[in-house]
Amino acid sequence: MATNRVLCRGVSKQYGQSIVLDGIDLALAPGEAVAIVGRSGCGKSTLLRLIAGLDRPSAGSIDIDGKPLTGLNPHARVMFQDAALLPWKRVIDNVALGLLHAPAAQRQAEAAHALSAVGLGPRAADWPSVLSGGQRQRVSLARALACRPELLLLDEPLGALDALTRLDMQVLIESLWQSLGSALVLVTHDVDEAVTLANRILVMDRGRWTASFSVDLPRPRDRTAPEFTLLRNRVLDAVCHDPHRLAM
């Protein structure tokens, strides 16, 4: 049996008095795509930061490929909601950021390859400031993919984009993820996006899992198919269902 790429056991995170994550378990197989959905502030981004090694859990353990995670996770690449490109580096040099330790020729080739994979090859010499929001996100995606990570962590990567660009990006992310074969964790509040991209959808509320769905629809997924709509509605129900909240 292959070891889990990520294995979280009883992970909790506490900031002062507030408990953000409360005993989270998560096992992620290599090549699997998991979507974490929930309302804003439910702790889903915090979990992603813990898996990336940007923060330490207050309790519990995180194993990466069977080894406990201490410090930064070297196999993970994160894509944030804001592209977080370095404004003083040209597009191509931003993509090459994760390849600094590779020989120069290889660095150039892999960065150019990743950039053309997201369809921005001709913009290599531009400054990030002249790109549109969607293009910046694609550069950010290329940067994350350029080093062929085993684990791709997407933190609401498309939250700031318009609806049409978002659909294009979802197609792009799916095809790149499939060709790369890396494990994917997608944090989002967009249920459609989760159903489109994930093998498994986990619903989080106040730092705990409240529901889990496996998605067995054929790829690429047809948003108009009845199965898609049915599953989307079930996930949406799980996200919105909250016995503690007042009815709106």
Binding site: L54, L72, R77, V78, D82, A84, K89, L97, L100
Partner: peptide, 21 residues
């Protein structure tokens, strides 16, 4: 922007590279 420093960390930049780049 602290986010940019996080990016540098995630992408495996050493302390010297963080300063330089």
């Amino acid at each position: 922007d602290p986010r940019l420093i996080e990016v540098a960390q995630i992408f495996g930049l050493t302390r010297g590279e963080l300063i330089r780049h």
